[in-house]
């Protein structure tokens, strides 16, 4: 167990991190992610308010759509990344555990009189069901069928008589969904999912934080505090696609300035031979000069590679560029590679 944003979270279950990763890629992984925060924005001004607060395009969003977005400050630095859901008459915003208090303060500080912000984090539990068999499992045990929902949409379903807001979203690169429901049913739903998986012969296992990290890493998804943070702007992290420059949003002008000047560093993937790259390790050019630093790194079980994400000088950002990663004082051969290492299911 490890302390994580005030929660005790298992790094891995007895199954082991590498096998947990494999199970999620081949069948179904269950993720106990109650630590994630959920805010709801309501009121006549909600659409205009959300549009200004988040980077993503919101003008075309109607129920039941869901979308990835960034929360930026005036400098274009990344306060958090979010999933925003357009509900029947409000917005549902999912934030990271570590940033929940600060995000809420940010939302409140920019609130207009015509919106209400409700923090549902404590009352709401969140379980992710991810993997190629996840949708089949949920279809068999709940109703209505989630297979009828498109990717990045949501629906209201019932499993074991528990009312659930289901988003066909996730953080693993696999198909599946995320379940929001009243916290008092958490244990009952968790056990029901495991029992039904076993009963139906659909391999279903609990997945810990280590595999959650390697799954998201392979699929090219960022983790706040690593690929994105309050000292990293959206452009250098490669998130221009998550910003709608047709609208006005906090951080927009700063990002336009970065685009005009060109970013001073870029996020790249790096594959390493002869060692495991990890957060904080330096990256050097072929001449030995330090050109960047790893923000995450690990063994990637599905693609069977030792890889890092690193911020490097733009001249070294092209795929195929040979570099070195310094592992315990030893420069190891490495090469800049295209991200993601593993193509997520929704892009296949």
């Amino acid at each position: 167990m490890a302390p994580f944003a005030g929660y005790d979270m298992p790094i891995s279950y007895p199954t082991g991190a590498v096998e947990e990763h494999a199970i999620t890629r081949r069948s179904v992984g269950l993720f106990d992610i109650d630590h994630m925060g959920q805010f709801e924005v309501t009121g006549p001004g909600a659409d205009a308010y959300v549009a200004r607060m988040v980077s993503a395009k919101t003008s075309d969003m109607q129920a039941p759509m869901a979308r990835y977005s960034l929360l930026l400050d005036d400098r274009g630095l990344v306060l958090d990344d979010l999933f925003i859901y357009k509900l029947e008459s409000s917005w549902w915003i999912v934030v990271n555990a570590s940033n929940r208090e600060q995000d809420l303060a940010w939302f409140m500080a920019h609130k207009t009189p015509d919106v209400t912000i409700i923090d549902h984090s404590d009352a709401t539990y969140m379980i992710a069901v991810q993997g190629p068999n996840a949708i089949a499992l949920l279809d068999k045990i709940g109703a209505p069928a989630v297979s009828a929902l498109e990717r990045f949409t949501w629906g209201r379903i019932k499993i074991n008589s528990i009312d659930i807001l289901f988003g066909r979203t996730g953080y693993t690169g696999e198909d599946g969904g995320e379940l929001f429901f009243p916290a008092e049913h958490a244990e009952r739903l968790w056990n029901f999912l495991l029992e039904k998986g076993a009963e139906l012969g659909i391999e279903t296992m609990p997945i810990g934080l280590a595999a959650r990290d390697s799954l998201r890493f392979e699929a090219g998804m960022p983790l706040h505090g690593h690929e994105i943070s309050q000292s990293i702007n959206a452009i250098e992290a490669g998130f221009k696609w998550a910003c709608d420059f047709e609208k006005d949003f906090i951080g927009k002008q700063a990002l336009l300035d970065v685009i005009a000047a060109g970013p001073s560093r870029k996020l790249v993937g790096i594959e390493v031979t002869g060692g495991v790259p990890r957060e904080g390790y330096e990256v050097a050019g072929s001449d030995g000069a330090i050109i960047g630093r790893c923000v995450a790194g690990m063994y990637c079980p599905t693609v069977k590679k030792y890889a890092a994400n690193a911020f490097v000088e733009p001249a070294f950002a092209k795929a195929g560029t040979p570099v070195k990663v310094i592992i315990r004082g030893q420069p190891k051969d490495a090469v800049v590679v295209k991200r993601p290492l593993y193509i997520p299911a929704y892009r296949r």
Binding site: A17, V18, E19, G275, V276, Y299
Partner: peptide, 8 residues
């Protein structure tokens, strides 16, 4: 240690 992924 948990799952071992590399040995030098």
């Amino acid at each position: 240690l948990g799952d071992i992924v590399f040995i030098e």
